[in-house]
């Protein structure tokens, strides 16, 4: 790693004043250090987030809380291990606990945070090696498309075929109206702190066609602060890995079902590791709406529908079959959580 300096603010305001394209916030630091060690990222300053206190009056940066109305608030600094073990998460939105438990390794889950997981950069080998010309690093082409792309995107891969690496993002996307709070310093004379919320399914994820340099609509001077998740107890997240001990998902799926009686009134199905951003599959959801909860033909139809429009590359066609399987299994796992 190149040398960097290390700022230790104790308030969110100070953090925000320090942040810049070369001064990056550091929480768990797993992705940040990996990128720095590979020479992909060379921050001049790391801004430590571990000492800032919880803001009075705003959502919390730490902890899992249950708000009025039963929705979950999860601070961006909460670790994956805490999410996976949280009884509240398991009760209110179990898909998120599934996703957190499936991530990385026990050691990494003890350190990695919700915010870092959502904002981590793709695992594409070409992106993570400064040797290559890569769109995501301001280059002109995608070497993976004509290179080795066995694990890469089967949707939305025309420009860049890196997949979005966050399984928590996939889970959150499946929750209706799940939102993120970010915090920034208002531009202008007052320079006050400004919160904004953004719905995950409405503009948080950035496709390479729109801007290949980023995956999330967070400005350099802005900090991801918390996530809000309405209750979605009939939900599950499932991923398929080649290796069962620490591997990135080949395909992933989160399913949220709105169950009325023994019918599926509504469904949301999010697909992970198959596109540069997590995707909501409306055709898959449509195949379940109004169907019986245990109508396995409808599950199969939804699984097949989820693969509609896939554009696999020369070496990753197998992911289409895997996607069908993981959607089917995620539906089954969600149904198992309905009483």
């Amino acid at each position: 790693m190149k040398p960097f300096s290390y700022a230790r603010p104790t308030t969110a305001a100070d953090v925000l004043k320090l942040l810049s394209p070369t001064a990056r916030p550091k929480a768990g630091g797993n992705d940040l250090l990996d990128l720095a060690k590979r020479g992909v990222s060379t921050p001049a300053t790391l801004v430590d987030l571990s000492r800032i206190s919880v803001q009075e009056g705003g959502p919390r940066f730490d902890g899992v809380t249950v708000a009025e109305g039963g929705q979950l608030e999860i601070g961006a600094r909460v670790t994956l291990a805490q999410i996976a073990a949280s009884a509240d998460v398991l009760r209110i939105f179990p898909a998120l606990a599934d996703a957190a438990a499936a991530a990385a390794t026990p050691q990494i889950r003890n350190v990695a945070t919700l915010g870092g997981n959502l904002l981590q950069r793709p695992r594409c080998a070409y992106f993570r090696d400064p040797f290559f010309d890569c769109l995501k690093r301001g280059g002109t082409s995608c070497p993976a498309r004509d290179g080795v792309h066995d694990e890469m995107a089967i949707f939305g891969n025309a420009k860049c075929c890196a997949t979005h690496p966050s399984n928590l993002a996939t889970a959150l996307l499946a929750a209706p109206q799940a939102g993120l709070a970010t915090i920034t310093v208002e531009i202008g004379a007052k320079g006050g702190l400004v919160w904004r919320t953004v719905e995950l399914s409405d503009g948080f994820f950035v496709r390479p066609e729109d801007d290949p340099l980023i995956e999330a609509a967070i400005a350099p001077g802005e900090l991801l602060w918390a996530a809000f998740v309405p209750a979605a107890p009939v939900s599950a997240y499932v991923e398929i890995n080649q290796k069962q001990s620490y591997d990135w998902a080949s395909v992933a799926c989160a399913v949220v079902l709105d169950v009325e009686g023994d019918k599926i009134a509504d469904a949301r199905i999010a697909l992970g590791a198959v596109a540069p951003v997590p995707l909501l599959s409306e055709p898959a959801a449509a195949a379940l709406r109004g169907k019986g909860l245990r109508d396995t033909a409808a599950w199969d139809a939804a699984a097949a529908a989820a693969t509609q429009g896939a554009t696999p590359l020369a070496r990753n066609g197998h992911k289409v079959r895997q996607l069908r399987a993981v959607v089917r299994r995620a539906i089954e796992a969600a149904v198992a959580r309905s009483k």
Binding site: A125, Y126, D129, F131, F132, P143, D146, G147, V148, Q242
Partner: peptide, 14 residues
């Protein structure tokens, strides 16, 4: 599992 993968265009280890 194991497989050393080289980029065919550049000969760089992936």
């Amino acid at each position: 599992f194991e497989d050393r993968v080289m980029d065919p265009k550049t000969g760089r280890l992936l």
